[in-house]
């Protein structure tokens, strides 16, 4: 004798079928977004790969697509990364240390915290407007690498602070207590024990933040990075262009050849990003092993 009537069995079968279809649908959606990434990369490679050669890397931009290259943009981006790193890493890590190690949880701490999480949500273009008014005009730094780097540093600061705080929080309390019990001061503890222990996490966060800065276009356009630069910047006060700006310039031209050049530029940009991310993973793995 069956425990279920025919109707109940049918109902159960329907529910199970629905469940199966649902799980397959979710899987299909997920795999199609993975597929989309492949399409994107394939599309860019098909358009741009044939344009990439030494001439493309080592030439200045040109009105003639076959002579145009990405040299000034690549050098500009490398300058930017360097300057942004010098400015944003000390400030970001110090802020995180202050918030995690040197204040008690309270209203002030909470206020700064809310502030930082709101800053992380401000659109990048608003930072561009801020940079234009403060650095370019008010401090009269003109449309220089330094203006760009300062603007970008403000943009990625919240990301660095949030990542560093998370890394610092994972350091076990016992390490701090051991240092204090030996008579170390707060700063000695933070500098010699907490910071090294949280280094891999901080580095990962910093590199991810820097790679976000490399891809950002809008703030640099607002502060007025040039789109046609046939020289290399020699110091932080020189005007400059950067890879995303150069790519935007090529995309916004109507000719197909320039669109292909843009694709070639995108490949170089993605390669730089890939190298940075790989470095982040390498540093993380290496330092983690050493600390154990």
């Amino acid at each position: 004798m069956s425990l279920m009537s025919e109707k109940e069995k049918k109902n159960l079968r329907n529910r199970q079928r629905k469940s199966l279809y649902f799980s397959r649908l979710c899987a299909a959606v997920t795999w199609s977004s993975v597929f989309l990434l492949c399409v994107l990369i394939y599309q860019v490679s098909v358009d741009g790969l044939s344009w990439i050669d030494w001439q493309f890397i080592s030439s200045f931009p040109s009105r003639f697509p076959e002579r145009a290259g990405i040299k000034s943009a690549l050098v500009g981006t490398l300058w930017l990364i360097g300057l942004i790193a010098i400015i944003s890493i000390p400030i970001g890590v110090s802020s995180a240390l202050y918030l995690e190690e040197f204040t008690k949880p309270g209203k002030l701490n909470k206020f700064i915290e809310v502030n930082i999480s709101n800053l992380a949500g401000v659109p990048s273009i608003v930072y561009g407007i801020l940079g234009l008014a403060i650095f370019v005009r008010f401090f009269a730094l003109e449309r220089s690498l330094l203006s760009g780097a300062l603007t970008m540093s403000l943009l990625i600061l919240p990301v660095i602070i949030i990542a560093s705080r998370e890394a610092i929080r994972t350091v076990p309390m016992s390490i701090r207590q051991a240092a204090y019990s030996l008579g170390a001061t707060r700063w000695q503890t933070a500098w010699a024990h907490v910071l090294p222990a949280s280094f891999p996490g901080i580095m990962t966060g910093v590199i991810l933040a820097l790679s976000r800065a490399i891809g950002e276009t809008a703030p640099l356009i607002i502060i007025g990075a040039l789109t046609f630069v046939a020289f290399l910047p020699e110091g932080p006060m020189d005007s400059f262009t950067a890879m995303p700006i150069q790519i935007y310039n090529w995309i916004s031209r109507p000719q197909q050849d320039f669109h292909d050049l843009a694709a070639a530029g995108i490949i170089v940009l993605l390669l730089v990003l890939l190298i940075m991310n790989a470095t982040a993973i390498y540093i993380r793995n290496k330092t983690e092993r050493r600390l154990k």
């Binding site: 990434l37 994107l40 891809g215 950002e216 995309i251 843009a262 694709a263 995108i266 940009l269």
Partner: peptide, 12 residues
């Protein structure tokens, strides 16, 4: 996918 610069999506 989340880390790809927005300019690339524009091109796409």
């Amino acid at each position: 996918l989340a880390g790809i610069p927005t300019i690339v999506y524009g091109y796409f």
